[in-house]
Design a protein around this nucleic acid. Structure first.
Lengths: 203, 203
DNA sequence: CGCTGTTTTCAACGAGTGTTGAATATGGCG
DNA sequence: CGCCATATTCAACACTCGTTGAAAACAGCG
C-alpha cells in the first residue's frame, strides 16, 4: 500500500530532503480534512513520513504549525482586494467567479477548508479569521468601492459566498454541489452585484 | 465557585431527579460550544453534576447522545416548511426573519450551533444534515413553490441564510454581528425574495 | 418487610493526544 | 580530518478520551 517500512534510523538524511515542506503539505491536508482539533500531529507526521518530534523541531507547538499553514489565505485576501480595485462593470460576476474558483483548485481550497473547519470549531481560529478579514479586507473596502456603507456590503457578500462554498464543498449539498461552476456563478452573480450597487434596506 | 463538593455516594437519588434532562441540556450546550469532537463526555457529565458512566446508562454511546440532541432541528424544518406553504406575498421577508430569528433565541440557536459546528467537522454529521435537508425539506419545496427548479432555489437561499447566520453567530464578524435583527433582515430579504421569484441565470 | 428493577458512583482499561529530553547520523566549514 | 550545527528518530511522560463491569443506594410493588 504505502512506502517501504524499513525502520529508519535517526540522523540526518542524504541530499536536500524537502521534509519541512512535506510536513507543511501534510498539515494543510489534515487541517483541511479534520479541522484544528481533529488533526493529530502523529497522523500529520505519519503522512509526511516523519517522526512527530520533528514537527516540534521545525515549527514548535501545534498552534505554531497551524499558523504556518495560514500563509496562503493571506495571499487570497490580496487577490480579492485587487479584484475590487478593478473597473466596476461586471464586478459582481468577476468577484463570485474568482472566489468560488478558489474553492475548485485543490491548491487553494485546502487552506480555505482548513480555515473554515477550524474557525467554526475553535475560538482562537475564529479570532484569527476575524482579524484577517476585518483589518486586511473590510477596512479597505469602503475606499475601494467609494461608498460609506461598504463594510456592511462586503460582509453580506462574504456571508453569501461563504455560505455557497460551505454548501458546495463542505457539506456537499446535492443541488449546489452538482452544478458546474459556470451555471452556479450565473445564478449567484446577480445577487452579489446587487449587494454591490443597489441601495440597502427595505424599499 | 460551583456546587458543594461533598463526594456523593452511589445509589439512586430521592424524588424525581430530572437527571436525564440535565444531561441532555448540558450535552446541547457543549456540542453547541465545541462541536461533536470537541465536546467531552466528562465535561458534559460534570456540567450536569453526574458521573460519565450515567450517560452511557441513559443514552448508550456518544453518537447516540448526539442523536438525542438533534430532535429540535427536526421541528425547525417543519416550521420552515409551514412558512413556505403560506401566501407568496412577502414570503422572502418572512422566511429570512423566521430563520434568522431562530438563531436569536438561545433555546433554538443551541441545537443549530451544535449541528453547524459538527456538520462542518465530522462527515457522519454532515451526512445527517444532508439527509435531513434533502429528504425532509428540498424534496417538497418544488411542490410548495410551484416551480420545477425549486430545489436549486431552496439550496441557494439556504446557503445565503446559513452564511449570514455563520457570520453573525459563529464567527461573529463585526458588521453582521452588530446589526440589530430588523435592519439585517431588511438588508437580506430582497436577495432572498429574488431567489424565490426572479428567473435564474444570466440575463 | 423483602424483592426486583432502576439510578448512581467507583475504579480501571486501552487507546490516543501534545510534548519533551536524549541519542544518533549527516552536511558543511575550518 | 575534526568539529559544530542541523536533521532525524526513540522512548517516555502526563494527560485526556470513550467505554466498561461491578457495586451501592434508593423506589415501588407484593
Amino acid at each position: 500500500m504505502s512506502a517501504p517500512r524499513e525502520a529508519r534510523r535517526p540522523g540526518r538524511r542524504s541530499g536536500d530532503s524537502g521534509t519541512r515542506e512535506a510536513i507543511l503539505t501534510a498539515a494543510r491536508g489534515q487541517f483541511a480534512a479534520h479541522g484544528f482539533r481533529g488533526a493529530s500531529l502523529r497522523t500529520i507526521a505519519g503522512e509526511a513520513g516523519v517522526d512527530p518530534a520533528l514537527i516540534r523541531h521545525f515549527f514548535g507547538s501545534k498552534d505554531d504549525l497551524f499558523d504556518a499553514t495560514l500563509e496562503v489565505p493571506h495571499q487570497l485576501v490580496e487577490r480579492i482586494k485587487a479584484e475590487l480595485a478593478g473597473e466596476p462593470e461586471g464586478l459582481g460576476e468577476r468577484l463570485t467567479r474568482t472566489y468560488l474558483g478558489l474553492w475548485e483548485d485543490p491548491a487553494t481550497s485546502g487552506p480555505l477548508l482548513a480555515l473554515m473547519r477550524s474557525a467554526v470549531t475553535s475560538e482562537p481560529a475564529a479570532e484569527r479569521l476575524r482579524a484577517m478579514l476585518g483589518r486586511r479586507l473590510f477596512a479597505e473596502v469602503p475606499a475601494l468601492l467609494g461608498r460609506s456603507d461598504g463594510e456592511v456590503r462586503a460582509a453580506l457578500i462574504g456571508a453569501h459566498l461563504v455560505g455557497v462554498a460551505l454548501a458546495r464543498h463542505v457539506v456537499r449539498l446535492p443541488p449546489v454541489a452538482e452544478l458546474d461552476l459556470d451555471t452556479l456563478v450565473s445564478y449567484c452573480a446577480p445577487a452579489i452585484g446587487r449587494y454591490l450597487t443597489e441601495p440597502l434596506g427595505a424599499p
